[in-house]
Write a protein that binds this DNA or RNA. Structure first.
Lengths: 200, 200
DNA sequence: GGGGGAAACTTGTCAGTGGCAAGATTGCGC
DNA sequence: GCGCAATCTTGCCACTGACAAGTTTCCCCC
């Protein structure tokens, strides 16, 4: 009741973005309704369009925010690559709405300037972690290792969010992710222990 | 021109499913329109509902088909786990529409009996690959290895489909996937080469 | 300090969509 | 060949995104 006004003029843009995050957590980014956002913010149905142009514009703004947040998160764990991977998964779980938008470029204008810039910053944060590695191999190997690490972290995060992982994995994403990510660095078995799964 | 009839009575169900695959490849599973499918099939806008109940029902049917197709694909590469991983990625790329539906359970009725059965068959195909491993470690390690392998294959596939991978990865998903997946089995560097990436 | 212009927001409208209800048509088994 | 059930259609409603045009408010500059 205290802050019911301030709408006709106020920070509608920010209000809409946070409302969008809530809505996406509830129904997913594709089912997001601009009119529902307007209702949540107490404004008319056309107000969101004024700030973001269209739905893709709003999601582009969210994607940009998300990439920036991811960049910040990764930078903080920059000295420890395993923990950076854990942080990646943790980001996906705790900022699910951001994550689900960021990697669905068909939902927003991926060529948006803000998005490209923020994505670049996130990429730089990842790269700086690689550069700090105790290297020694060929530079081509760096690319492959990086791709493998990104893939395993991203894959685990995605499967977690999709609810595809078996119950036995537990309910602590950081712990579970750490155990899985460690497999990339350590030789786990005698022979080639590649590809296998459970899927419930 | 030869098969323009057979609609008023015919295999509308199959026709709609294949039309749905086409449409999903074009606009994604979320933007799928039942009325557009009806138009493509030359029937009225309410015809799809009769066969699938609603949109979630149609996507559930697609998901079930997809899991069965994945199970078949994995079974064929069952003796070679690396190739099974490559087959997983290849499945995602060549059957993109199926893959994008299968791992978006919020879009369909995930408790559909057909879906659960097909998902079980796909899981069994994956497990049988693990069982054939030259094992030797603790059983708990098997779970982790399996999860790691699934994660890296799924993550690579997802990033590929999202167009998030840098150009230098090339345009051959099987080759690129094989190179990345191999990193899970072989010790690539001196120290712990974990987590790193490029993202553009 | 007030006038003017731009930014922020509203109202109204249109085409498209999913889902439901009620009706029409066809095939098929008895 | 009759009737019933499956298949498909027509019609409708609530909702959505996008656009156009109007209204209100702020604020900058004279």
């Amino acid at each position: 009741m205290t802050d019911t006004r301030a709408y006709h003029h106020g920070d509608l843009r920010r209000t809409l973005l946070t409302a969008a995050l809530e809505a996406i957590e509830e129904v997913g980014p594709a089912a997001l309704s601009l009119r529902d956002l307007a209702r949540r913010a107490g404004v008319s149905h056309a107000a969101p369009a004024h700030h973001f142009g269209d739905k893709a514009g709003l999601l582009a703004a969210l994607a940009a925010q998300g990439f920036d947040l991811l960049a910040q998160t990764l930078t903080e764990a920059d000295d420890d690559l395993l923990e950076a991977g854990v942080a990646y998964v943790d980001f996906a779980v705790t900022h699910r709405a951001y994550f689900e938008v960021m990697f669905r470029p068909e939902l927003y204008r991926a060529d948006d300037a803000e998005v490209i810039a923020a994505r670049g910053r996130a990429g730089a944060a990842l790269r700086s972690g690689v550069a700090a590695l105790p290297t020694g191999g060929a530079p081509a190997d760096t690319d492959r290792d990086a791709l493998a690490a990104w893939s395993i972290a991203h894959g685990f995060a995605t499967l977690w969010l999709a609810g595809a992982l078996p119950d036995r994995v537990g309910d602590n994403p950081r712990e579970a992710a750490r155990a899985v990510l460690r497999r990339l660095a350590t030789r786990p078995r005698a022979s080639p222990p590649l590809m296998a799964s459970i899927m419930e």
